[in-house]
Simulated scan of single mutants.
Amino acid sequence: MRKIGLLLLVFNVSICTWSQITYPKASPFSKLEQEIGLSKITLEYSRPAVRGRELFGEQADGQPALVPYDRIWRVGANESTKITFEHDFVVDGHTLPQGKYALYIFPYREYWEVVFHKNTGHWGDGRANYDPSEDALRVKVVPIKTMQYHENLLLTFENITHNSAQLIIQWARTKAVVSFATDTKRIMENEIREKLANSPTGQTYYEIARYYQEEGIRLDEALPYLGKALQMNGKTYYFYRVKALVEGDLGDYTAAIESAKKSIQLAEKENKDEFVRLNQKDIKVWQEELKNN
């Protein structure tokens, strides 16, 4: 009898599982990965729609809106929004250690508090289970009204550099911005030391020089690295392109023009029209600099 009962239980569970319907979610899931320098931020959230509702604060009749003031909001729907940092970041002057956090917001009438919460196990906003002592960091932002309208909640990264980015939170005509910064230079210097100590190739030297040129740092070191890259890997149009830029940044316009011409010759052989145009444009600038000096 026990065996029969167990079989019936398994059968009933299987029937329930088979009978479940997969249906489209009202607030579809979205995942965003954004590289920032040598680090990465991953964002996972569900995107609710406005559907004609009053979103933040109070409705016209004084009743609470969908996201009331003074109460925790999960910054999305369904599960809590998750944000993961590969490296330490600085937010509003405070260090946020690498790791995965639940992202919450407490909307107040005059400002919002954005919360990076260490406990990622709560469903939704946690409500009674939410413990402020588990916050990793809180920062204040002031939301603004915009002309652009977003029916679905939208989280994006904008104004991205090697060292920073902004998280843009937009829903309906409300927009808030959270700024992040990371010490890419420190990470990159560690990477450079490691690569130089382990049989560097011509490509290694080129990439180091290109990074220095893009950041406008250590240009005196970048030039000999490019020399090693050309010696080891032969004549390459993009090696000469960066060499020209470094020489131009150093004020050696004659050498820059010569390197740019070599880059053009090599780029033309490979039908790299964009590099031809870029070099031609810079040659005109450097020629003007020579005339004026």
Rank of each mutant, 00 (worst) to 15 (best):
Y211P: 00
K235S: 14
R241N: 15
I217W: 10
Y240K: 06
G216C: 01
M232E: 07
Q213C: 10
A209S: 07
Y225E: 00
K228F: 05
Q203E: 15
E214W: 01
E214G: 05
Y240L: 11
R210T: 08
N233F: 11
E221G: 03
G234P: 03
E191N: 11
I208Q: 00
E215F: 00
K235L: 12
E194R: 14
K228L: 09
P224E: 01
G234A: 02
Q231L: 13
E214A: 07
E215Y: 00
K235P: 11
R218P: 10
E189Q: 13
A197F: 04
L226Q: 06
Q231M: 12
G216I: 00
L196Q: 03
R186H: 13
Y212C: 04
G216M: 01
L226A: 06
R210G: 07
E207N: 12
G227K: 14
D220E: 15
Q213D: 10
K228A: 07
E215N: 07
A197G: 06
K195N: 10
F239Q: 09
Y211G: 00
R218N: 15
P200G: 04
Y238G: 05
K235T: 11
I208N: 01
N233V: 10
R186Q: 14
I208W: 01
P200A: 03
A209Y: 01
K195G: 03
L226G: 07
L226T: 06
G234L: 05
Y205D: 03
N233M: 14
A222I: 06
Y206E: 09
N198A: 11
K235N: 15
M188G: 00
Y206I: 07
Y211C: 01
A222Q: 04
E207T: 06
E207L: 09
K235Y: 12
L230K: 02
S199G: 05
G234Q: 03
A209V: 01
I187A: 09
N233E: 15
M232P: 02
A209W: 00
P224T: 00
T236I: 14
Y240A: 09
F239V: 09
L219V: 02
E207K: 12
I208V: 08
Y225I: 05
N198S: 13
L219E: 07
G216P: 03
E194H: 13
K228Y: 08
E221N: 09
Y211W: 10
M188N: 09
E189W: 12
E207I: 01
I192M: 00
D220A: 12
L230S: 03
E207C: 02
R186S: 14
G202L: 02
R241Q: 15
A222G: 07
I187G: 02
Y206A: 09
E189S: 10
P200W: 04
K228C: 05
E221M: 10
Y237E: 14
S199H: 12
E214S: 08
G202Q: 05
V242K: 12
N190R: 14
Q213L: 11
L196T: 02
K195I: 10
E189K: 14
Y206P: 08
A197C: 04
Q203R: 11
L223S: 08
E191H: 12
G202W: 08
V242R: 13
A229T: 01
E215V: 00
E191C: 04
